[in-house]
Computed example of a mutant assay.
Amino acid sequence: MPKEWTEKQERQYKHIRDSEEGQGASTRRAKEIAARTVNKNRAQAGQTKTASRSSIKDKSPQQRGGQRSGRKGPKGPTRDQLYNEAKQRNIRGRSKMTKSELADALGK
């Protein structure tokens, strides 16, 4: 665990990791999901030096509760998440693109 994490965050990480493994996720995937959840909560609480806009403005993982998986309607990453990836890849015209246009430009 990173030394910046509190004991509560470490307990939360272990709980999420064990839960994901119990649901059939690989050990590596379970660790990734748990770390992302804890780090997103830290970003929303202002405990990190840098944080993406989507981490701060999006719902917390606990509130979202799997909203973007296994349901009808829009799925996958949010427009802001796609925009951030397009920004990293230096795709031109990204600020005027819609979610579907960003996904097409990224090849998703």
Rank of each mutant, 00 (worst) to 15 (best):
S60V: 01
P77V: 12
G46E: 03
N84L: 15
K49V: 12
E20M: 09
Q62P: 00
E32W: 03
Q88R: 14
E85T: 14
G24D: 09
G46D: 08
S52P: 06
D58I: 07
S54M: 02
K49E: 07
E20T: 00
Q62R: 08
R79D: 11
S55E: 14
K87C: 12
V38T: 02
S69A: 05
N41E: 11
A35I: 04
Q88T: 13
G65S: 07
A45Y: 14
R71C: 04
E85Y: 06
S60F: 01
G66K: 06
N90C: 05
A35K: 06
T78D: 03
N90W: 08
P74Q: 13
T50Q: 10
R29Y: 07
R53Y: 12
D80P: 04
S26D: 00
Q44W: 10
V38F: 07
Q23D: 12
R71V: 02
T78W: 10
T50Y: 09
R42F: 10
R36P: 05
T27M: 05
P77N: 12
G73P: 01
Q88D: 14
P61K: 04
G46F: 11
Q81C: 12
A86I: 05
G73I: 10
T50D: 10
K31I: 00
A45L: 15
R64L: 01
T78S: 15
Q88L: 11
S54W: 06
T48K: 12
D58A: 13
S26F: 06
K49P: 00
G73M: 08
Q23Y: 07
S55G: 15
S69W: 03
K72T: 10
R79C: 04
E21W: 07
R28T: 10
G70T: 00
G24T: 01
A30C: 03
A35G: 11
Q44V: 08
T78H: 07
I33Y: 04
Q44C: 12
G70V: 03
T48N: 13
A25K: 07
G73Q: 03
G70Q: 00
T50H: 14
